[in-house]
Write a protein that binds this DNA or RNA. Sequence first.
DNA 1: CGTGAAACCTCCGCGGA
DNA 2: TCCGCGGAGGTTTCACG
Lengths: 146, 146
Amino acid sequence: MTTLDGLDERILAILRDDGRASFAVVGERVGLSASAVKRRVDRLREAGVITGFAALVDPEALGWTTEAYVELWCAPSTTPAQVLAVAARHPQVVSAATISGEADALVHVRATSVHDFERVLERIGADPSVVRTKSAIVLSRGVQRS
Amino acid sequence: MTTLDGLDERILAILRDDGRASFAVVGERVGLSASAVKRRVDRLREAGVITGFAALVDPEALGWTTEAYVELWCAPSTTPAQVLAVAARHPQVVSAATISGEADALVHVRATSVHDFERVLERIGADPSVVRTKSAIVLSRGVQRS
DNA sequence: CGTGAAACCTCCGCGGA
DNA sequence: TCCGCGGAGGTTTCACG
């Protein structure tokens, strides 16, 4: 783990809030010149702290109106990498993780409709390494931080 | 839902991948001038399709090494807004949603340690509207798309 | 939508603490 | 090592056609 000083943390906070803020503006807010900010941001990218910059898009605005979480139970001797690969095959899968507890993995899905979701669920469940699925459709969303 | 043409979609795809790409570079790739790209991006922000721009930060690099999902069961006559508000109070909560199925809500948590996570879990469980919690710690992460 | 111009930003090399 | 400065070249922004 890379160690950050207070200036780095303030720069990160500003850029997480506005990824297009100019180095000059960031510098003004933290008390550095634009060059110094650029050097720190370059260093943070190099160190892997900043993994990139992105436009944040409202999924609903693109028609991805159905959201769900799917628990996966796997066949014995299925490796974590295998089950994560099954999920990764579908573009509707937002994230996948192996977990502790009863199920073996939890998959976060965004689909264009309940019907679209059903198709993904079916295809995930059809994989030989998947024994059972249990899904929960999102009814309403609260927090949604970075 | 706002309707986007093919140009808008290509611009969005580029900016989701590189939020700092200049309008000139985006324009070159989609066959528009920088001004035309800017006007479309301004319109997409105005319409709420683009909700902002952000630096993407690796949570592990900031010391948030523990990740978990917590299912919440609530007392009868608890409103969705109430349960989501309980989760939102903690900075470790990344996202929260009410869901269909057995549990009433699913909360995604990132903490600095298992001990830190335990404290959050304890405080969420202590809320009078929360009857029971069931948590699953993330063992390994696969996909992680926008 | 493109063009053009002014203001602004990025990027990099240099010299100082 | 980390800073600020300065300047060349690229970018943003806007009125205009």
